[in-house]
Design a protein around this nucleic acid. Sequence first.
RNA 1: GGAGGGGUGGCCGAGCGGUCAAUGGCAGCAGACUGUAAAUCUGCCGGACUUUGUCCUACGAAGGUUCAAAUCCUUCCCCCUCCA
Length: 417
Amino acid sequence: MTQFKSDFMRVLHERGFVHQCTDSDALDRKAAAGELIAYVGYDCTADSLHIGHLVTIMVLRWLQKTGNQPIALMGGGTTKVGDPSGRDETRKLLTAETIDANMQAIRRSFANFISFDGGAKPAIMANNAEWLDGLMYIPLLRDVGRHFSVNRMLTMDSVRLRLERDQPLSFLEFNYMILQSYDFVELARRYGCNAQFGGSDQWGNIVMGAELGRRMEERELYGLTVPLITTASGAKMGKTAAGAVWLNPVRLSPYDYWQFWRNTEDADVGRFLRLFTDLPLDEIARLEKLGGAEINEAKKVLAFEATRLCHGEQDAGKAAETARKTFEEGALADTLPTFDVAKAALEKGIPAYELLRQAGLATSNAEARRLIKGGGGRLNDQPIADETMAITLAHADGEGRIKLSAGKKKHVLVRAI
RNA sequence: GGAGGGGUGGCCGAGCGGUCAAUGGCAGCAGACUGUAAAUCUGCCGGACUUUGUCCUACGAAGGUUCAAAUCCUUCCCCCUCCA
């Protein structure tokens, strides 16, 4: 492997961020000179990103840390096109207000990883609706479309795979790569952007964008993709019963975020430490070597560091402390997620299944009942024998708190108020 | 426009008049074993309740036939393949 002059490319390779790259020497030169301005595009269909986005976010973070400039591009325009594959329901068009609100929320998450203000190279957040909304079809065809060869487009993986499998590919989708390519050029014009990063599935789109830049503007644009991160068991990471692992604390508490990382498989610990924390490599190497139960120490470090990046040092520390009390001391940590019930209701008594559902440990009464029947419902760490058992103030400790659990890992503190 | 094939639970995919809330797989949840890991085994996996039961909602949509429909008929919508 080549020796890299730039910190940026060296870090990316050492930590396992690189899947494919259009021209690593050129990227290295740009990065070494501090001239790399790179973007990653994100959908803004929801008010939060999730850990699937985290790999590229970390790349942008390293980019900024090594003296270059990141751009986070929100797909306000491309969101309007949407992905037409899927179900018969036409996707709801998001209003400009919703998109804007989502952008603001996402920006807050981003702000923990990269800095948008201050510093020599503040990160930029752009919205492709700004230029895509106003595009007119004929001019677009003349200015942009003429640079695309259908022959070439047909050979792109995204298209070819569909064709080979006889899967439908609408004309709308066929155009997606043109719009994304155009984003690249527009960002180059506006901000001097010269590189695009993305997931490995974005390779084709990124390459097309780089080519378009060369043809339209005679600009050299570069691309780099990150690998798709799966767990050692081969599953796509980040799926739980509750849905995605969100970065927005409103959607997923820092404590639960911490727990997600804490429950990493042994075989993934080293890789995840390299990808999702800033820890120096020698430190990671040391942690990775821990065998047997000691690997749990490494997992705690991973959980703390990953949570620190996303939610800040304070919340990460709190989450770690809550977990320590709960799991290692078996004590009642008052920082567990809480659920408040009216004292009056508790005096009368609430059926166990009902309270479990209300506290968010089950999504329906039926699920709560099944959970209890299966032995997974716990009241103050004791399995609940009968799902209709009334939980009353008598179960509360001196401070009016009841610990309710679904399984051994999910706990909620019910407080009588 | 013509001919044929198809739309089933989060996904894949059986069923093709009653025994269907719907086989199986994946994903998920819980229990056991452990180390808050993996693997393995076991149970659960539409909803409500007065839970060995009753009711509601659900097999693209709307009607119809029937004691009874995911299954048959009609119309409509959508997808695919071939022909023009």
